[in-house]
């Protein structure tokens, strides 16, 4: 049997050149790609790839809250379900809600309840579904970031998008956006979500220990990073809604030509599926 304690001491998460296992510096994010409006049935949806994370978010509502006794006559409920696919992690994850996913669902729904104009939709619920397809540490941040894009895509009135990022400590160094290995073998992980416009913190958790100074530094790193992520979220939404605009611009030259001017508009006919028209 191998001495696990011994292996841990051998492990170097940050090299002599100050680079991490995947070549990032302490304040670098993993590559992020966000796409809005990926699901047809949902009112709003988004897909995010954040390093090795692949997360899908769907939003429904505001819709009638069920069960009825949960309805609040003064405001809308913001309900969230964070779920990991059985194949999202290296060992099979037992399907269904567990302690961890119930907790994450709770903190995420509370984060969104503070930005959505809940008082405009009494007795309804806004339902957010976050499905983790592939996990590589930081799924709650990725899920929250995607869900916020999905909420905007659904046309839910809200004060601002919510942007989320984690920082932590590995080999005694405070670093941004830990990946799986850094999370497993590092010293601390601290996910947070902020409202970029006001700087309000709507989610803050910590696993492990950070001193006050380390925590301040981690906050600083995360807040800086959320500004970059915020731009990507906005960009995803702009791309989603300019697709039709670009298409129109692209189509305008053929529209002037005499042959089949509106041909490109025909394919959507099939897109609606059996219940479309």
């Amino acid at each position: 049997m191998e001495d696990i304690e011994h292996i841990e001491k051998e492990m170097k998460l940050i090299g002599a050149d100050g680079r991490r296992l995947d070549g990032r510096r302490f304040d670098e994010l993993r590559p992020i790609r966000i796409e809005a409006g990926v699901l047809r049935r949902a009112d709003g949806s988004a897909y995010i790839e954040w390093g090795g994370n692949k997360v899908l978010a769907a939003v429904y509502g505001p819709r009638e809250a069920h069960p009825r006794h949960l309805q609040d006559p003064a405001r809308a409920l913001v309900q969230c379900r964070y779920n990991m696919a059985p194949f999202s992690v290296s060992d099979r994850k037992r399907p269904g809600p567990d302690r961890r996913s119930v907790e994450i669902s709770k903190v995420i729904s509370e984060a969104f309840a503070s930005v959505v104009f809940v008082e405009q939709f009494p007795r309804t619920s806004v339902d957010i579904f976050i499905e983790v397809l592939q996990a590589d540490a930081g799924t709650r941040c990725a899920g929250l970031t995607a869900a916020s894009v999905a909420l905007a895509d659904a046309g839910v009135p809200m004060r601002d998008l919510v942007t989320s990022c984690a920082s932590g400590k590995i080999d005694g160094v405070v670093c941004l956006d830990l990946n799986k290995d850094e999370d497993n073998f590092g010293d601390a992980d601290c996910p947070m979500a902020i409202v970029p416009r006001t700087g309000d913190v709507v989610l803050l958790q910590m696993d492990g220990h950070l001193t006050y100074d380390e925590f301040q530094k981690a906050m600083g790193l995360s807040i800086d990073a959320t500004k970059r992520i915020y731009e990507q979220q906005r960009d995803a939404l702009r791309r989603r809604y300019s697709v039709t605009l670009e298409d129109i611009l692209k189509e305008s030259p053929p529209a002037a030509a005499p042959v089949e001017p509106d041909e490109p508009s025909s394919p959507p006919e099939e897109d609606f599926g059996p219940e479309g028209i």
Binding site: D43, G44, F117, A154, G155, V156, L237, Y241
Partner: peptide, 21 residues
């Protein structure tokens, strides 16, 4: 407060939503 198109009319700013219930 919503994703949409900005509209200004006699000192009143509104956003025409692109989506919503």
């Amino acid at each position: 407060a919503q994703l949409g198109i900005r509209d200004e009319h006699e000192g009143l700013v509104s956003v025409i939503p692109l989506n919503g219930r």
